[in-house]
Design a protein around this nucleic acid. Structure first.
Lengths: 234, 234
DNA sequence: CTATATTAGTGTTGTTTCTACACTAACGAA
DNA sequence: TTCGTTAGTGTAGAAACAACACTAATATAG
């Protein structure tokens, strides 16, 4: 019986290989992160990053996407490798090396799904998380730094917003990620000056104040500009 | 017999875990990379990045340093994780996931050692490398991009120079890494204006032209400035 | 229907940073 | 003494950045 279960044998010992995902979303202008509550040993009851072991027939990114979908129902449009954590004692079960990924999702798309598909998945403020299992606090820290760095020179912020948004939402997003206030007029001047936003013939509705114009990120235009040597920078 | 050799058994199959290293040096102002020539299957005879399998009693970084020392004799002062490569078919021997590292060394320290300790290690121009084994061309590409990006906002260039250097060496370094010419006066103004270079009471010797003043990177001063919120940028 | 609360939207000015650019100084070798 | 070679220096115009305050539009409360 044990024979049948423990049936993969190698000449040299191998660490187990896992993936973990840090998924960011934006809720009412506040940066959120997706966690799951562990129900098994070790760290049972603790919140942790979604993740799991890599299978032999899938790449690392595929493993990250699969685990994320299985555990939370989330299928991010933007997913990128973060860092590989390989300290000897990071998992009490033994030697587990984990390749961490980070992702951005439009919360509007995923709020309901995550609530239904996965019993124990929930969004937390990216700062106000409880103490996480394993070395996941460190992974989350690193993901936040990476997002903060990357959002400055890549137009990835749009992955967090609905397709149509107003400039104040975009500004709030940058303020949330960069953790500092921005000047409204300078921000608008800069972002509109880039020419990567498409101004729509549409304004927001049902608001108790002046309605804001809606915009859309013009990916085609962005790629064209990049091809000509331009680079996004906030 | 086989029983004794193939003696590590797991419930689930595990990919093998390796590390590979991209080591950069600077030779006469030209960026070089350290390669080893493989003598075993697969890719016997091809040049490859130094690397090997991770042991159970060492962290990933330790594995990278160990393999690098064993295969090339090089012990870099600066070493950082690059990316983890986990495509299914990247190694013909089977599923091997490789955590790549990149490093900077002062070539003056390592030129002789590498030549003696390791028969089959050699420096190549970072661009004019032969076709490498495995997916190592891709890894090298990525390391070059990372170096190029990082050298702009971290004072890591100094890791490539001897402790005392002249400004024209520093400029050459940046030109080699960034692959574009820089204006001498603007470069000097900028780098000296930072206040992280210590001007020494020493000039170069035995040159058939006006001798250049020597400088040293002032790490203490740099760290002090960082503590005050300043950031290096070229 | 008027007033109020709330968010949208808009330009200018002074400061700093960036870029382009050319000559003199010092030294050894011929 | 001359020549070849690299070191070392300043300015001016352009561009980017930072600071800053009022009017416009809409729903709601009184």
């Amino acid at each position: 019986m044990t024979e049948q279960l423990l049936s993969y044998t190698y000449e040299h010992p191998r660490p187990a290989l896992a993936v973990d995902c840090v998924v960011f979303g934006l809720d009412e202008g506040a940066l959120q992160v997706l966690l799951i509550q562990r129900d098994a040993h070790p760290f049972a009851g603790r919140w942790a990053l979604p993740g799991g072991f890599v299978r032999m027939d899938e790449s690392l990114e595929q493993a990250a996407r699969r685990e994320l979908a299985e555990e939370t129902g989330v299928r991010p449009a933007y997913l990128e490798q973060l860092y590989t954590f390989g300290e000897l004692a990071r998992d009490p079960r033994g030697r587990v090396v984990s390749v961490a990924y980070w992702a951005l999702v439009k919360l509007s798309d995923h709020r309901t799904k995550a609530a239904t598909d996965a019993r124990d998945a929930a969004w937390f403020p990216a700062h106000g998380t409880p103490r996480l299992a394993f070395d996941h606090d460190r992974i989350l820290d690193q993901a936040r730094s990476r997002l903060q760095a990357k959002v400055r020179y890549q137009p990835i912020g749009f992955e967090l917003l609905p397709p149509k948004f107003k400039l104040s939402q975009l500004q709030q997003l940058y303020e949330a990620v960069l953790e500092k206030p921005l000047d409204k007029r300078n921000f608008r001047k800069k972002i509109l000056g880039m020419g990567v936003l498409e101004e729509l013939d549409e304004v927001e509705r049902d608001v108790a104040h002046r309605a804001a114009r809606l915009y859309r990120f013009d990916r085609k235009r962005y790629q064209e500009l990049v091809r000509r040597g331009w680079s996004f920078e906030i």
